[in-house]
Design a protein around this nucleic acid. Sequence first.
RNA 1: CGGGGCGUAGCGCAGCCUGGUAGCGCACCAGACUGGGGGUCUGGGGGUCGCAGGUUCAAAUCCUGUCGCCCCGACCA
Length: 512
Amino acid sequence: MSSAKAATAIVPTRADDYAEWYQQVVKHADLAETSPVRGCMVIKPWGYALWENMQRVLDGMFKDTGHVNAYFPLFIPLSFLEKEAAHVDGFAKECAVVTHHRLVTKDGKLVPDPASKLEEPLVVRPTSETIIGEMFAKWVQSYRDLPLLINQWANVVRWEMRTRLFLRTAEFLWQEGHTAHATAEEAVEETMKMLAVYADFAENWMATPVIQGEKTAGERFPGAVQTFCIEAMMQDRKALQAGTSHFLGQNFAKASGIQFLDDKGVLGHAWTTSWGVSTRLVGSMIMTHADDDGMVVPPRLAPTHVVILPVTHKAEDRDRVLAYCKALRDELRQQVFAGQTLRVEVDDRDLRGGDKVWQWIKKGVPVRLEIGPRDMDKDAVFIGRRDKAPKDKQSMGRAEFVATAAAMLQGIQDAMLAKAKAFQAEHTRTIDTKDEFYAYFTAPAQADANAPTPIHGGFALTHFGGDVALEKQIKDDLGVTVRCIPLGDGEPGTCPFTGQPSPKRVVWAKAY
RNA sequence: CGGGGCGUAGCGCAGCCUGGUAGCGCACCAGACUGGGGGUCUGGGGGUCGCAGGUUCAAAUCCUGUCGCCCCGACCA
């Protein structure tokens, strides 16, 4: 008897050990694995399919806002990075550097050939502002060449100390938008437009509520004038930066020489922006929606919307049940959801029914249909929804299901967003005293110093005078930082830490 | 990079203290039973115990070094 079977498909649960739970979800949902290469992950088909869906939707949004795709080199000459002082400082400590172009055998080992040493080392791009800026400088001569609206889908490398699948890996996949404009106003408008695109995507596709805001000076992208972000709350109540949009002023234009003659014949530097989201979004999706039974995929980005599980215990039923399932699959594939035809699979693998059911639950597929002879006789389907308990299943007439499947998926999508919104609201507190702030972010004491920190805190909204030393102090004391200064108007007030006047409240949280 | 923990079959672990030549659960394979469910029974395959030295008649076990992974911290998308 395996009656000791866990009550949840994922062990440990979120409450028991959040960090370990996250890794187990990634593993059991078959999203990704660590690789033999330090800090680099292998994204498995189910995880990659999520990324592909994100790419498809975002790419459409970028094109709808006038952008076009291009591709720039993986390698960046070292000297390019040196051109922008703040940029160098920000990335110098995490660059992979190529110094040779040939290997030779020495004492039975392959080693770089000293004779092949590069005159100038190449850096594997941590981001592409410099190389793209170099090209923009060639492409832009006149105000008629502007705006230049380019996006790149690429991989980048940042040699991080400590990595976590999807959230922080040495190599990750992303898109980076790079634009150049004739005026500061246009560039700022672009920066805000793309931030809004990200927020729209997060809410309406990822079912993830986000706060749009501006970063403080300390959290700003190296070389940017202003950095904006969308911040989401994970289920351990920490903040995750899910996307960034930077107004770069003329910093990179000056570094790269992006100059143009305006309509009055005056030579000036262009104004640039950059913006990006990465495979980190997959991590964000996991930590926003997954539960103690595994992944929960928002229907609009699901690689498979509906999986059909044929119940074929008796050999003589097998053929007719399979035929019924495949016919239903083909009919469902005619239906449209979120602008695309339904993605439906029949899982006819030779596995036990229970195993299959739990595999799909752990992968987070939105809707499961169990179909056997009994259902066929009634011309019905037996439905399991991922936003309900595993055993909470219901029967529905086949025709009715086909007609309402898209609506059901949208219902799941809406329920997921509502749940995530409620969670964020529940763990966001308006705070006006230093004592309450410190208490809010202090974890309950525990006996074992090496045990995972209990989930506590959340988002705190306080007034803030903008004092850099204070921000540093709070970070040292609590590990809490200003995640962003939310967009929009706010009530002026007084900073609870310094008594300085504050234009509006800011969002504090522990961050990924 | 600082503090802690861990590398034994595909996965999860026991064995290590008190050296004697490797075991359990799951998974996998075969057969039977079962049949709206993460089954039952029987039989079976699979590991030079992370790597490299050292001590010893003998090392998964003791010693040294090294590599890797995880957690906490610093740094970061």
